[in-house]
């Protein structure tokens, strides 16, 4: 029993880091896929009528994809911080592991929701450029506003990771 508790205590720290990294990539990536899916439907709709709008639509389609990249970045940073990317021994306390896991949450949560809403904004902007392609500049700015909050999530996650003493 004692051996088992000791093993759990040793392994729980790295496991929590892995959980945090998985949440960052999983949630932010899912949000991005969802958001792109929403924007894709709109893009497919206007391109059925006017295939020449592909160039405009592509810019707007790509926007909700950034949250997935942010999630991946934070996950890599978290794994690197915990030494899980190298081959060496990993020694983390439960509290350190928990800290890194929590540090991954800002981008996981803000990435998930902002990507979905950015997808909806992108879809609305795609409808806008279907009528007024000359307004592509403004059409990109509108969904980019949602990006701000994903960037905040990314920033806070990175700051939190840097703040954890190992």
């Amino acid at each position: 029993m004692e051996t088992m508790l000791s093993t759990i205590s040793e392994q729980l720290g790295p496991m929590l880091v892995i959980l945090g990294a998985a949440l960052a990539v999983g949630f932010a990536g899912s949000g991005s896929a969802w958001g792109i899916g929403i924007a894709n439907e709109a893009a497919a709709g206007i391109m059925t009528e006017d295939p020449k709008k592909f160039g405009y639509a592509l810019v707007l389609l790509a926007l909700p994809g950034t949250q997935g990249i942010y999630g991946l970045l934070v996950a890599v940073l978290a794994l690197q911080k915990a030494g899980l990317l190298g081959a060496g021994d990993v020694s983390l306390t439960v509290w350190q592991g928990l800290g890194i896991c929590f540090a991954c949450l800002p981008i996981a949560i803000s990435g998930f929701y902002s990507a979905i809403w950015q997808g909806k904004s992108s879809a609305a902007s795609i409808l806008m450029i279907s009528k007024r392609p000359e307004q592509i500049g403004k059409a990109v700015i509108l969904p980019a506003m949602c990006e701000t909050y994903a960037v905040f999530g990314l920033l806070v996650s990175i700051l939190m990771l840097n703040g954890i003493k190992l």
Partner: peptide, 9 residues
């Protein structure tokens, strides 16, 4: 999403 976009076009 698709239907409304197509209608808009």
């Amino acid at each position: 999403g698709y239907a409304v976009a197509r209608i808009r076009a």
